[in-house]
Design a protein around this nucleic acid. Structure first.
Lengths: 203, 203
DNA sequence: CCCGCTTGGTGACATTGTCACGGAAAGCGA
DNA sequence: TCGCTTTCCGTGACAATGTCACCAAGCGGG
């Protein structure tokens, strides 16, 4: 089966459409389907008992949400939640069909493998950064990685905190110091990068 | 191919033997083989530029070291290191053979999938704990999970720090408070749990 | 015994996390 | 437009954790 054939098979499955900020699944929900994101993106969080949250990874267009997969395979407790970042669409593949595809198509297998190893790599990197780098560094890296064409990005301190694995207040303070140093400008719900070079040297 | 047949195939590959504390692979090393641990265990670390280290996950008997796999599949930079915990043996499967097995045997595939999802799950959990729980809690959980039959374990503060993702000094201080509270007793290179119940409530 | 290595202890200080506020900005219905 | 609510941000005070520098105690080999 060629990659093209795969995508035509996939297109036979129903597509769901979700608005931004919607919950895709939450903790302990039974996983019966595999999702393949066809537009938009989904962010997967971990959440502690007290409500603290941290971003684990993001699933983009063309990628699979494999949390469900690993849950099914490993009979594991997976205390995570997923929300759409913006308007998002996804193909829904029932477990049976998924396994059959896995049997029959080497290309599909490769795709799934890729997805799994991509996740592993992402989570690992995030872990490393959070444990080994300073908050300021993580913040700077994140801002640079998500700026738009005009060098600004639209986000709240709260969201940033979840992204870099810290608390909102800490983000506020760090952003303030970056602002007084002239590296960025902040406004309600948006941040503009003024000096990307010095920002990238921050840490 | 049945599980039994798989293991007999696997036994045709050469087995390597390593002593405890040996490096299995280090950063940026080219990965040409897949390793299946047949005895002992291997710990995989991340290391920062300044030499700080943190444990990512452990590979036990019967499990695969899939770091190499994900590297190969994804052409990714994987800045990790692995060391044997104790005397360890492993089968070495060349990449070609590995892929062929993956093609031919559903059971082998399942095994590899299992391994990948197991890793993902482990790293995720570790990540969550480090970000969301206190040092004292992580320490207590770790001590309890690795005590031997007599309620003690043999390890250094340094090792503990790597396990729970903190600094050695912090471990020393936390252990001291646990000791003065009568929950544990410490000695050079070993810790004895005196009150597992209260220890498990720590945090 | 002396030396060198590993392990652990400690004070001082920097960074980060938590808690409890309160205020400013945007949204919204009357 | 006004009041009301919600969201977002700022801040002080304090607790927890991380970092640095240095020293002391145990342990093993010559």
């Amino acid at each position: 089966m060629t990659p093209n054939q795969i995508s035509s098979v996939i297109e036979t499955f129903p597509e769901v459409h979700l608005k931004g900020g919607q919950c895709v699944f939450s903790q302990g929900q039974a996983a019966e389907n595999f999702l393949l994101v066809t537009g938009g993106s989904v962010t997967v969080f971990a959440r502690s008992a007290e409500g603290k949250e941290v971003v684990l990874y993001r699933v983009h267009e063309g990628e699979m949400c494999l949390l469900t997969t690993t849950c099914l395979i490993g009979h594991r407790h997976y205390p995570a939640e997923a929300f759409t970042d913006s308007e998002t669409s996804a193909r829904v593949i029932p477990a049976k069909e998924f396994e059959s595809l896995l049997e029959k198509s080497p290309e599909f297998r490769k795709m799934v493998f890729n997805g799994l190893s991509e996740r592993l790599s992402q989570v690992t990197q995030r872990f490393e950064h959070v444990v080994l780098e300073s908050v300021k560094r993580r913040l700077a890296v994140f801002l640079l990685s998500r700026q738009d064409a005009s060098g600004s990005l639209q986000t709240t301190h709260d969201q940033l905190a979840r992204e870099v694995g810290t608390a909102r207040e800490v983000v506020s303070r760090q952003l303030k110091t970056l602002e007084t140093s002239g590296l960025i400008r902040t406004g309600r719900g948006r941040i503009t990068i003024l000096d990307p070079v010095r920002l990238s040297e921050t840490g």
